[in-house]
């Protein structure tokens, strides 16, 4: 047991991507403030360029709050899941892409990089990381209707990997959940009930990966919380297993964690398209022109697009 814990502690996930609820909200608030300051600066620079100062007032009335940013990010996290289902990518690819995007916005703001573009770059990178590589042409083919080009995906690849600080390995609760399921078969009498519990737990894990639980707890803890939550519904007794595996002191620290995990999963609410549209409309007015390829400020600073991917022939 101690050996396994040491191993997880070596992972980049443990070393670089752990937060408490308060440190996480402080970080997001600081990002949001700095983001707003940069938008103001760029708008000023742009108005001196083209004499249009009306945009500044519009932007001031529509600045996104940290909650707005999170709402829009969460909406597009759901889109990752939808896209990944269309492509038939497995749950690991989905969860890795979702985690990539959650981590990306700890080092970026929606003002600079709207999640709509980042979402595809995260999903494409996740296919490579999780050994499910597809050629870029095959990846964008199903998106032809939405006019997504190869460079719409690849142009963001560097800013995404930089923001992930090149930590590409992500651990999810799916595998530990399977391990617990195998382990518990010795302790739970009715295997069909256990099977049902495991299947339900996987659905709860699908929800958990959208939440901030991934920044608070280890994958095995989230897995166990999801199993506990499922077990309540299927009336499966998993406590006997827990008491056989952990001593009283360990259980004392484990139970509050499992309670929190269950609580967060229960609380999870998807963002509706309507809510997202409201935020999206505000974003059009307060987007940072410095990072917006269609703004006059961007065009004056970046006379030509550097990426060569679309023109070369492989």
């Amino acid at each position: 047991m101690s050996d396994k814990r040491e191993l997880f502690e070596q992972s980049s996930q443990f070393r670089h991507w752990r937060y408490t609820p308060s440190s996480l909200s402080a970080l997001r608030a600081a990002n949001n403030q700095q983001g707003i300051a940069r938008v103001r600066q760029s708008l000023l620079a742009e108005s001196s360029l083209d004499g249009n100062s009306a945009r500044t007032a519009e932007a001031e009335n529509n600045m996104l709050t940290p909650a707005d940013e999170l709402g829009l990010i969460n909406y597009y996290l759901q889109k990752i899941r939808d896209y990944a289902t269309v492509y038939k990518f497995n749950s690991t690819v989905k969860a890795t892409a979702i985690t990539f995007m959650k981590r990306f916005y700890l080092h970026n703001v929606v003002f600079d990089y709207p999640p709509k573009g980042i979402m595809l770059a995260c999903l494409y990178l996740a296919t490579k990381v999780e050994n499910s590589f597809v050629k870029i042409d095959d990846f964008t083919k199903p998106l032809a209707r939405t006019k997504v080009t190869n460079s719409d995906v690849l142009d963001y690849e560097f800013v995404v990997t930089q923001s992930l600080q090149f930590d590409l390995a992500v651990h999810h609760p799916y595998r530990p959940a399977y391990g617990f399921f195998l382990d518990m078969q010795t302790y739970v009498e009715d295997i069909t009930v256990l099977q049902k519990t495991y299947e339900l737990a996987q659905k709860y894990i699908d929800q958990a990966v959208f939440t901030d639980l991934v920044f608070y707890y280890q994958p095995a803890q989230i897995a166990l919380g999801a199993i506990k939550l499922a077990a309540v519904e299927t009336r499966c007794d998993v406590d006997q297993y827990l008491t056989s595996q952990f001593d009283a002191r360990a259980l004392e620290s484990l139970y509050p964690i499992l309670d929190n995990v269950q609580e967060e999963i229960r609380k999870y609410q998807p963002v509706s398209m309507k809510e997202a549209q409201v935020i999206d409309r505000k974003l059009i007015l307060c987007r940072n022109p410095e990072k917006n390829p269609s703004s006059s400020l961007y065009k004056s600073k970046n006379p030509e697009v550097p990426y060569v991917s679309d023109s070369d022939s492989d």
Partner: peptide
């Protein structure tokens, strides 16, 4: 053509 190539991704990961 497909951006970051697999061997770079694998090595860094």
């Amino acid at each position: 053509r497909s951006g970051l190539d697999m061997s770079a991704v694998r090595e860094v990961k």
